[in-house]
């Protein structure tokens, strides 16, 4: 995939783009984007994969208007218009899944399908959630992965003071801006999820310690016709620990849509 930038009105975002086929827009989670992960390489075999870094994240701008999740949703509607894309398969993971829902309740005019990978955004009373804002980077990896070998490898790869890394600070600050209060959700989102009228699949790891797997059925019940695919033996970071299964879950849903 190739790195490039796009400027939409006053905001320049960095993106990875590659592959051929119908357009598939992937929205990253709170940890950030900007790196081609194996699941993305797999998706690029079947799709024109577009993976931007959100405003406020990575190498993208931090625009003045960046106040809440709705601002990001409207940005992506502008982004699709700017690239003049139609028939877009929209997929998002965690924070990105939340943004994808916020986009889709506003307009599905340019969308062909929606895949939500353990999305944040919906508070379901009684279901367990973790608090990544209370965790160290090491604890976040331990909680995020089901397979602790992945956690160990990720911790071993951390720089000595990751809390002093510019991109880490920027991503975390933007994540807080969007998700600190209310924690990881928009209380108004469930009222409008019925508006999503494109084929929707919800993918969840059955061992997710950040947003427990019970969220999948709860959210599916709010989106007409949405299906659920549970990935066994997977935590929240299934984009890394279950790369092939995730690429298949997104790719097959989009293809069947």
């Amino acid at each position: 995939m190739q790195k490039s930038t796009e400027t939409v009105r006053d905001c320049t975002v960095s993106l990875l783009r590659g592959g051929s086929g119908p357009p598939l827009l992937f929205l990253h989670g709170a940890g950030g984007g900007g790196i081609e992960l194996p699941f993305m390489t797999r998706l690029a075999e079947r799709y024109d994969l577009i993976a931007p870094e959100h405003p406020g994240f990575g190498a993208s701008d931090e625009p003045d208007w960046f106040d809440n999740i709705h601002d990001v949703a409207y940005f992506y509607l502008d982004f699709l218009e700017h690239l003049d894309l139609t028939g877009v398969h929209l997929a998002g993971m965690s924070l990105g899944g939340w943004i994808a829902m916020e986009v889709a309740v506003r307009s599905t005019a340019r969308l062909a399908s929606l895949t939500l990978v353990c999305p944040a955004g919906v508070h379901v009373p009684g279901l367990a959630t973790g608090d990544p804002f209370a965790w160290s980077p090491e604890e976040t990896f331990r909680q995020g992965f089901h397979d602790q070998e992945f956690a160990k490898a990720a911790i071993a790869a951390l720089p000595e003071a990751v809390e002093a890394d510019d991109i880490w600070l920027k991503n975390r600050s933007s994540f807080a801006r969007l998700a600190w209060e209310p924690r990881l959700h928009d209380p108004h989102l469930p009222k409008w999820l019925h508006r999503i009228d494109v084929p929707t699949r919800i993918v969840w790891g059955d061992r997710d310690n950040i947003l427990s797997a019970g969220h999948a059925e709860a959210i599916a019940a709010m989106i007409p016709g949405a299906g659920v695919a549970v990935v066994p033996e997977a935590g929240h970071f299934l984009h890394i620990e279950k790369a092939d299964a995730l690429a298949a879950a997104i790719g097959d849903h989009a293809q069947g849509a």
């Binding site: 804002f133 209370a134 965790w135 160290s136 809390e163 600070l169 975390r172 600050s173 994540f175 807080a176 801006r177 600190w180």
Partner: peptide
Amino acid sequence: PIEFLLPPG
């Protein structure tokens, strides 16, 4: 812990 002393931003 630092996550409590210095929340993001």
